[in-house]
């Protein structure tokens, strides 16, 4: 079952902000116009909370997919349901699609709107993810972007870039690192970085955990 089988059921040609988002943006505009807040300084403060949204639920999803073939199959078939099995559901009921890295294919996710980030599984979007250079270059020059993230892939690895929509958010399942046979899900989850689930990183090498211990 490939993620390519998924078609877009709706043709949404405009953006939509939820009632809550409208209220938050209205407040930000007001406070900015009055000179009480400076948007770059606000972003900087929010960045310090980046890891503070929920636990990194996505890492547990990936670790389970690595260890449980049945779960992996359910995840590839219907990621929304498989992720919900673990108790992680989004407030807006967004549709999740899992894309799996293999020896031949590397997946990478981009979106031009920060609201199109699967924060229920990945937490807060990093600032670079929302930045214009990443958004435009990820599509045009994925290899160059990956190099900046210190990810070097073999020349014959195909890179697939997935553009999220308001309805569909992607979760990259990175390749399971070698040398992790018999590891528990919890231990494996420590190897799954946020960037590896966006596709701008790989899962950590087991030796990196030994260094930290």
């Amino acid at each position: 079952m490939s993620a390519h089988d998924h078609d877009h059921p709706h043709d949404h040609d405009h953006s939509e902000l939820s009632e809550i988002e409208l209220r938050v943006r209205a407040l930000e505009t007001l406070l900015t116009e009055k000179g009480y807040i400076d948007p770059p300084a606000l972003d900087e403060l929010i960045e310090t909370y980046e890891t503070k949204i929920g636990p990194r639920n996505g890492a547990l999803v990936v670790a389970k997919a690595w260890t449980d073939p049945d779960y992996r199959e359910r995840l590839m078939k219907d990621a929304t349901a498989a992720i919900a099995e673990l108790g992680f559901t989004g407030r807006q009921g967004e549709h999740m699609v899992a894309v799996e890295n293999t020896d031949d294919i590397h997946n990478m996710v981009v979106c031009t709107l920060c609201s199109c980030y699967p924060w229920t599984v990945l937490g807060l979007p990093p600032v670079w993810y929302k930045s214009a250079p990443y958004r435009s270059r990820a599509v045009r020059d994925p290899r160059g972007v990956l190099a900046e993230f210190k990810v070097e892939l073999p020349d014959d690895t195909e890179i697939r870039v997935w553009d999220s929509t308001a309805e569909i958010r992607y979760l990259v399942i990175p390749k399971r690192p070698a040398g992790t046979d018999g590891w528990s899900e919890e231990r494996l989850a420590d190897l799954v970085t946020r960037n590896s689930m966006i596709g701008t990183g790989l899962a950590l090498d087991p030796s990196s955990l030994e260094d930290a211990a």
């Binding site: 930000e28 807040i37 909370y49 949204i53």
Partner: peptide
Amino acid sequence: GPVFSAPWEARIFAMTVKAHEA
């Protein structure tokens, strides 16, 4: 540290902190 369950929550929290600082 503060805990949030959605990005907008972090945003409104940060705005409150900044408005207070101002």
